[in-house]
């Protein structure tokens, strides 16, 4: 049902077709996080793949930098309604991490964990096939702390809360375990094109 007196300002067709439902385009890069920006140094930094509590493989900052690097460019969509077009990231794909560790994904789901104790859940197939990376560069520069640097998960085909900032580990889980926002009503999967913002969407 139309809202009385509202016409809005729909964007031009070429923008509109790149915007998932309910999103608007911004040129800024807004910051969304639950608390202060943690101070994460690359000195002593480690990134770990775990299964439950058990570490499967881990990398220091320098070891991570030595792995094959991949660039990804495209649009990102935040559940708070902004989308940003043509973002450019570089990092190490999850495929390359697993290959470097000589591992196959041991379970079907992952909880990504951040240095701020943030967690978010993602099905493993959404992390493989070049769909996700541990990103360390944004537009060719080290990622700013406010945007998750030194390293963040990047899963750009899902709402951006799935792209955990200050990522420190991926924990493989047997079941699809809800993360921080998912426990608070955000959608378990979070596909922007199906507008899966909240439980039941």
């Amino acid at each position: 049902m139309a809202t009385r007196g509202f016409t809005g300002r729909p964007p031009a067709a070429e923008i509109r077709e790149r915007l998932p439902p309910g999103q608007y385009l911004t040129d800024d890069f807004p910051v969304l996080q639950m608390g202060p920006t943690p101070r994460v140094s690359t000195e002593g930094w480690r990134f770990t793949l775990r299964q439950g509590a058990k570490p499967l493989a881990s990398w220091s900052w320098d070891e991570l930098q030595a792995l094959p690097r991949t660039r990804w460019g495209g649009d990102i969509h935040c559940v708070t309604k902004w989308s940003k077009f043509d973002t450019a990231w570089e990092g190490v794909t999850i495929d390359d991490l697993l290959a470097a560790a000589g591992l196959e994904a041991p379970t079907g789901f992952v909880l990504a964990e951040g240095h701020d104790d943030y967690t978010t859940n993602i099905p493993v197939p959404d992390l493989l096939g070049g769909k996700a990376m541990i990103a360390t560069l944004y537009e060719g520069q080290p990622i700013e702390p406010d945007h998750g640097g030194p390293a963040r998960l990047l899963v750009p085909h899902l709402y951006f809360w799935k792209s955990a900032k200050w990522v420190k580990s991926l924990r493989f889980t047997e079941r699809d375990e809800a993360g921080f926002w998912e426990l608070r009503g955000y959608h378990m999967y979070g596909d922007p094109w199906r507008e899966q913002r909240f439980t039941g969407d």
């Binding site: 509202f6 016409t7 809005g8 729909p10 608007y24």
Partner: peptide, 10 residues
């Protein structure tokens, strides 16, 4: 909000 042509803003 919904416009007469179905366009929505949230």
């Amino acid at each position: 909000l919904t416009a007469p042509d179905g366009y929505q803003a949230q």
